[in-house]
Design a protein around this nucleic acid. Structure first.
Lengths: 207, 207
DNA sequence: GTCTATAGCTGGATAGAC
DNA sequence: GTCTATCCAGCTATAGAC
């Protein structure tokens, strides 16, 4: 449990990862303005000058950080979509607050760092396309009329509702949230039936 | 059309407003990180020290700026809700990209300025309550079953969809947006009938 | 690879003249 | 009220020793 410092034996070449990990922790705990070269270096137990050695610039660090998280998210979503109940699984993934917090911070960052924006747009398209590829067939299998409810609209509804709910909840405001969640889950149930297993987040929570 | 400088006759005591206007312009054009004391002062044709004279701190400026805009928005929303077609009118108001951009910037700001967060939460509640007060009756009048579709859920759906669409559009990403808008407007039409008048934004646009 | 040291800039805030 | 001048802090980035 000793926090290893860089440059010691046994910790060779993962300074790069340590910097990314430190940046991610700061991003989640305090938001992107807290992700400065000095603080990232300090938190990683390394020198801030190394950020420029590994990533060229703060822009490079942010882009790399976003990519790493987005790739993980895509894999996680792909796994969820392969569940026997892809709608429930997708709802659970979207409803994860850590993921959403990350997303919101990068949306905000994208406003002012063109390099980040390009990355966010590219991965947004990949996320949505992946959802579409799987759910188009699944929803047709549920007997949903694609002319009336194009799959992409259900995807957007799920995504937008969970985003807004999590943003608001993060600020300590939740007027109407319970009703909204009840309605969403009722509609999922109408298509996909009752959840087979418990909500992963609940299952993971110690009783 | 001459940009007046502070301190000249005929422009007496509105330096305060000029500072707020400058801050707002910067916020909308470049996002909140561009709203610095120096730049606000410069843009307002005034001295940056005056920000501390009028608002005590940058925090004070942001809070005041948010309040001013939020009050205007509330009035605008109240007017929309009194329309003969309140759902169409609300959809139009929510769909306004300037307003939404403002909102998103302040959501982001709220993450790191507790004073701003408190303000955002308070006004969020007032917005939603105002929507509820009017639409609860209206929707009942349309014959909508409140047990199945509580009014607050429709309000949240409209709000969340327009927020996500505008965020994405702002980044140059709009996969599925057309389908989503078509579905939303179809559902509004089912409740409230065809729009009586053209979309205000379209009506305002020069041919 | 990792460090120290530092240049160069921009920010918020305040003191005090007018 | 409005300005100038200034303090102090924090940031990114780079040069160069080890």
């Amino acid at each position: 449990m000793i926090k290893p410092r860089r440059g010691q034996p046994g910790n060779k070449a993962d300074t790069r990862s340590a910097l990314l990990d430190a940046a991610e922790a700061l991003l989640l705990e305090e938001g992107y303005p807290a992700v400065t070269s000095r603080r990232v270096g300090e938190r990683a137990g390394a020198n801030s000058a190394l950020i420029h050695y590994y990533f060229e610039s703060m822009d490079g660090l942010f882009v790399e950080l976003f990519r790493r998280g987005a790739e993980r998210g895509l894999e996680r979503q792909a796994a969820a979509l392969q569940s026997p109940q892809p709608l429930w699984a997708l709802w659970d993934v979207l409803h994860d607050h850590i993921n959403t917090f990350r997303t919101v911070e990068f949306f905000a960052l994208a406003h002012h760092r063109p390099a980040v924006q390009a990355e966010v747009v590219e991965y947004s398209a990949r996320y949505r396309q992946q959802q579409l590829d799987v759910l188009t067939e699944v929803l047709a299998g549920y007997g949903l009329d694609a002319a009336t409810w194009p799959p992409v609209t259900l995807i957007l509804l799920l995504g937008s509702v969970s985003l807004l709910l999590l943003i608001e909840k993060g600020m300590g405001f939740d007027l109407g949230h319970a009703e909204m969640i009840a309605v969403v889950e009722r509609e999922i149930r109408a298509l996909e039936g009752d959840r087979f297993t418990a909500h992963p987040a609940l299952a993971r929570r110690p009783s």
